[in-house]
Design a protein around this nucleic acid. Structure first.
Lengths: 200, 200
DNA sequence: GAGTAACGATACGTATAGTATCGTAATGAT
DNA sequence: ATCATTACGATACTATACGTATCGTTACTC
């Protein structure tokens, strides 16, 4: 669905350079104008390619955006044997990603569009879930080690840990600093490690 | 800035009915199509008024949206003498607002637009801040009572408490349930009440 | 070097934005 | 009662810009 098939082995091959230029331009424009204001024409112009070159590969802007978004780096996994350390390392490295890529502008735009675009919501559900993977696995390791009680609601715990970042990103729009991670994780984990909350 | 002045005392007065119909239609469309796809023409059609009637009162869709958004109910304040109870009551009532108004669709849309629309970001900064008012005041009361240490970073604490709601709203799009509030606040407050985290 | 498919560019038709203006309706002043 | 004034809903107008179709050219296979 993402890419139209390159049909024959004969003829001029598709340009990999154009492919990358298109994806880069898509991310740039996504960050600048958002999903709904993004147009294939705008991407073509920014990428220095013809519109047909884009439509030949992607049926519409939706799969184009999906592929471009998927190319952004995800969360790196760390396994230090300590949940707090894992989370801190993971979030610090992820904040680095936010601050060095278009992700910090792209993510709010897509999340906002999700609310009134069921098709986009559907396509991004698995992508979004997969992005949380390393976080979930860190919690699961902590449960397996006996570091936290199996009764803790892991989904809620995860939301608690990343919540402040989301709030900062969506409502404050401020730069994220790796220095906020330490107190954030400590504060969030205090109740989780004590096994204070049973499952909801 | 929000409303063009009703200039003279003579002539036909502006219709209050049309005013309300326009604001209602704006919220509806904001929830359905989002900010950037919202057009004054669409609002006029939905509200059953002429476009001129809208442009006579608002210079563009931005102040129109600001006024429509401002008409949505905010967070109710509770003062029970216990921080946990205050937060639970406030969040439960606010979730009711989310589930009975267009807020749950409007908020992500505006938050997403904020990322690439500096003008909207600027206009909504004070509005957004004021919306958090009751939450901040509950924490300040808790500090005054000695319930939590003055060294706790209140901004971070607030983000921690509302974070899971934000995550749910932006990434999962699931209905918010008042039943999630109890464990959520308990989990979040565990570290805050212990004074576990010093200021960042 | 003939055949084929992708390339960037661009012309085309359609849709819809915001502006300007229409005749009508409702109020206050004379 | 009549007139002046302003708002009303409707619509014609102009410009922009979307996606589609097609151009001559380029790159690669056989």
């Amino acid at each position: 669905m993402t890419t139209g098939e390159s049909s024959a082995s004969t003829g001029r091959p598709r340009s990999e350079e154009a492919h990358r230029a298109i994806l880069d331009a898509t991310l740039e424009l996504l960050a600048e104008v958002g999903f709904s204001a993004l147009t294939v024409e705008g991407v073509a112009s920014r990428a220095g390619v013809g519109k047909a070159t884009i439509y030949r590969r992607w049926a519409s802007k939706l799969p184009l955006v999906v592929e471009a978004f998927g190319a952004l780096p995800g969360m790196e996994d760390f396994d230090t044997g300590d949940l707090g350390e894992d989370l801190k390392k993971m979030l610090r490295s992820y904040i680095q990603v936010f601050n060095t890529t278009a992700l910090s502008a792209v993510l709010p735009s897509l999340a906002g569009e999700r609310a009134h675009n069921p098709e986009l919501a559907k396509v991004f559900e698995p992508v979004s879930l997969e992005r949380r993977g390393p976080l979930v696995r860190a919690f699961e390791r902590a449960v397996a080690r006996g570091e936290i009680s199996p009764e803790v609601d892991l989904a809620l715990a995860g939301d608690l840990v990343v919540g402040p970042i989301a709030v900062c990103l969506f409502f404050k729009g401020g730069r994220l600093s790796p220095r906020m991670v330490g107190p954030m994780v400590d504060l969030a984990l205090a109740g989780i490690l004590d096994g204070e909350a049973a499952s909801a």
